[in-house]
C-alpha cells in the first residue's frame, strides 16, 4: 500500500505528483519539528537575556546583550543553590533506584519462577495500587511524615521508593518468564539457594531489561515535581524541580531569565540520557502501546 512513491509503472505526470506529495509531507513534518524544538530554543535564548530585556514590552527575538550571569547567579546565589539541588536530586535517584530496583527484581523473580502461593492474588493486590491517584494518598502521608519530623527532608521522596516499583515488577515478571527454567534448575542442582540463583543466575540474565526500567524510573524521579514541591521548603534541601518551581517567573517576573537558565541546566542530563538511549526509548514505548 505504501510503496506509491517508488512505483516505477507510474506515468511521468503521476510521478511528479508523487514527488510533490513527498515534499509536502516533509514540509509538514519539519513544521511539526520546529514547533517541538522552538520552546527549547526560546528557553536557551531567554536564559542569556537580562531580566529587563526578557520582560521588556518591546519584543526582541535575540538578547540585546548576551549575558551569562543568569547561569553564574545560579551557582552563587544562596536562594537558588542549583548545585545543592543537583546533589539532592542525585541522592534521591541513587538511593531509590539502587534499593527499589533490587527489591522489585527480587519480587519479580518470586512471581516468575518460584512456587509462590496465591500468586494471582498478590499480583492483583499490588496492581490495584496503580489505579489510586497520588492525590488520594498525599494528605495522610503528608501528616505522617510531618509527625515523624521528616517534613523538609528528602525522606518522604526516598522512603516509598525503598519498597519497589509496581510497574517495574510487572514488566520484569513478564521478562523473567521468558528465561528457561532449565538454567535455574542447573544452579539448583549445583546447590544454589533461591537467593543465590537470583543474584548469580537471574540477575545477570535480565540486566538489560532492568536497565531499561531503571532509565524510565530515573527520568520519572528526575522530573517529579508534585511531591518535592509539597515537602521541600528550604532552598538548600530542594531537588532540581522543586527549586525550579520556586523560581516560577509567572509569580516573580524578575526571575524569568534565571528560571530559564535553571530549566536549561536541569534538562541537560535528561537530554544526554535520552539521546544516548533513544533507540531503546522509542522501542519500549512502541511495545507498551501495541501490547496495550
Amino acid at each position: 500500500m505504501m510503496s506509491v512513491i517508488h512505483d516505477t509503472t507510474l506515468s511521468p505526470v503521476k510521478k511528479v505528483g508523487r514527488i510533490f506529495l513527498r515534499v509536502l509531507i516533509y514540509a509538514l513534518l519539519v513544521l511539526g519539528a520546529a514547533l517541538i524544538v522552538f520552546p527549547f530554543v526560546w528557553m536557551v535564548l531567554g536564559s542569556f537575556k537580562t531580566p529587563l530585556d526578557a520582560n521588556s514590552a518591546e519584543f526582541r527575538f535575540l538578547p540585546v546583550e548576551w549575558v551569562t550571569n543568569n547561569y553564574t547567579d545560579l551557582f552563587t546565589n544562596t536562594n537558588f543553590p542549583i548545585i545543592k539541588a543537583f546533589f539532592n536530586t542525585v541522592i534521591v535517584e541513587v538511593s531509590v533506584i539502587v534499593v527499589g530496583t533490587f527489591v522489585s527484581a527480587l519480587a519479580a523473580f518470586s512471581f516468575a519462577k518460584l512456587k509462590l502461593q496465591h500468586k494471582t492474588f498478590w499480583l492483583l493486590f499490588l496492581m490495584s495500587g496503580m489505579m489510586v491517584p497520588y492525590a488520594a494518598l498525599m494528605l495522610p502521608q503528608f501528616r505522617a511524615f510531618q509527625s515523624m519530623n521528616m517534613f523538609d527532608t528528602l525522606w518522604p521522596l526516598i522512603l516509598p521508593g525503598f519498597f519497589g516499583n509496581v510497574s517495574m515488577i510487572f514488566f520484569l515478571v513478564q521478562y523473567m518468564r521468558g528465561i528457561p527454567n532449565a538454567i535455574l534448575e542447573a544452579a539448583r542442582i549445583d546447590g544454589a539457594g533461591h537467593f543465590t540463583s537470583f543474584v548469580c543466575v537471574m540477575f545477570p540474565l535480565v540486566k538489560t531489561a532492568i536497565a531499561a526500567q531503571v532509565i524510565f524510573w530515573f527520568i520519572g524521579i528526575w522530573n517529579d515535581y508534585f511531591a518535592p514541591s509539597i515537602y521541600l521548603i528550604t532552598p538548600d534541601r530542594m531537588t532540581l524541580q522543586a527549586l525550579l518551581g520556586s523560581l516560577n517567573p509567572a509569580q516573580n517576573r524578575q526571575y524569568l531569565p534565571m528560571a530559564l537558565a535553571g530549566a536549561v541546566l536541569s534538562s541537560i542530563p535528561m537530554f544526554v540520557i535520552y539521546l544516548s538511549c533513544q533507540k531503546f526509548f522509542i522501542e519500549s514505548l512502541a511495545i507498551s502501546g501495541v501490547k496495550g
Binding site: V103, S104, L106, A107, F109, S110, F111, L114, K115, L116, Q117, W122, F125, L126, G129, P160, F162, F163, G164, V166, I169, G193, H194, F195, F198
Partner: peptide, 13 residues
C-alpha cells in the same frame, strides 16, 4: 522464601 521475596512491595503497598 517466595513470600519473603515479595514481602517488601507488599509492606510498601
Amino acid at each position: 522464601i517466595a513470600f519473603l521475596f515479595i514481602l517488601p512491595p507488599i509492606v510498601g503497598f
